[in-house]
């Protein structure tokens, strides 16, 4: 059992946890800035970029995919700005127009490609392939110390580890600017903290995290992780460092329990095959958020403030 676990489940579990934490860390700022839908937009528009990269390069290599997705994200950002400014369209609708159009072109491109050559389909893009990221060379816990076996771990793991380090470094280095810019843009501007620059940096980091996680876990989990753990954490505390800690805890819990429930849960109730791990992780994060909505100590915030918060600050 335990050797099976190392071979089949350790890597997906680790990759899931890393992806969830990386997204949740950034999500804290998105939620506070009322920019939650950016995670949604980024994960939708990555699809055409990835498909185009796969078609042009003819491989499923990660390099071109990342470039394609990043390119698509930039194109989307420019398009949204264009539609907003030129068309004088409100931001929510502008996002809606651009992301559905780009996603539609991605789906059409997918349908046009010869899927026998490269394996890529809509389902893959939506729910990832977490379960298939197995570590064949790792036949026991001892393999963790065996350089030969370690050389064969799925490439998603080191990649997400690097992204997680980059995200943590970004937040640590720009902590002061991020926090001030999140709560009081005008004040941040007045003391030279460059809220626009840091805000743009945040979006870039979101795109990087989304693309890296996208390939491993699919787009649903990315959206869920950007929003659910930070939202739950926000209902637990009023302090920023505590909120970040809570969000990491919730993200880790979602990843671990989601993966285990998806992989082993159906077996416990007598079914023969497992269910989608990405979907289950998103579900567990939702259950956590649901529970916190009822018992979170800071769930109400200031009474009556909810009515005022309907209009997003521009």
């Amino acid at each position: 059992m335990s050797n099976d676990f190392v071979q089949l489940s350790l890597m997906p579990l680790a990759i899931g946890v890393l992806a969830c934490i990386a997204c949740a860390l950034l999500g804290n700022f998105l939620v506070l800035r009322r920019q939650s839908m950016i995670g949604d937009a980024v994960s939708h528009v990555a699809l055409p970029g990835i498909v185009l990269a796969v078609i042009l390069s003819g491989t499923l290599d990660v390099g071109p995919m990342l470039v394609g997705a990043a390119g698509a994200a930039i194109v989307a950002a420019l398009l949204i700005e264009l539609v907003r400014k030129v068309g004088n369209v409100e931001p929510g609708a502008a996002i809606g127009v651009v992301l559905t159009t780009l996603f539609a072109s991605g789906v059409l491109l997918l349908e046009q490609t010869d899927t026998s050559k490269v394996h890529l389909d809509v389902e893959h893009a939506l729910y990832g392939n977490l379960e298939s990221l197995i570590w064949l060379a790792g036949d026991s816990w001892g393999s963790l110390l065996d350089p030969q076996a370690l050389a064969e771990i799925p490439p998603q793991l080191p990649r997400l580890a690097i992204v997680l380090v980059a995200v943590s470094a970004f937040i640590a280095i720009f902590w002061k600017e991020l926090v001030i810019g999140t709560f009081d843009t005008a004040f941040a501007d007045s003391i030279g903290a460059r809220p626009q620059g840091v805000g743009f940096g945040l979006i870039v980091m979101v795109a990087v995290a989304a693309v890296a996680a996208f390939d491993a876990v699919g787009s649903i989990i990315v959206i869920a992780m950007f929003i659910c753990p930070p939202s739950a954490a926000r209902l637990m505390t009023d302090r920023m460092p505590a909120q970040i800690t809570w969000s990491v805890v919730f993200a880790t819990l979602s990843a671990v329990f989601g993966y285990i429930l998806a992989g082993y849960g159906p077996l416990w109730i007598g079914a023969t095959s497992s269910v989608s791990a990405a979907g289950m992780i998103a579900t567990v994060s939702g259950i956590i958020l649901g529970i916190v909505c009822f018992i979170g100590p800071k769930r109400h915030g200031i009474r009556g403030a909810g009515a005022l918060s309907a209009a997003p600050a521009e």
């Binding site: 939650s36 995670g39 929003i227 926000r234 209902l235 915030g301 918060s309």
Partner: peptide, 10 residues
Amino acid sequence: TRLAEDAAIG
């Protein structure tokens, strides 16, 4: 809850 509409929708 104190969550804004965008977080709830997302």
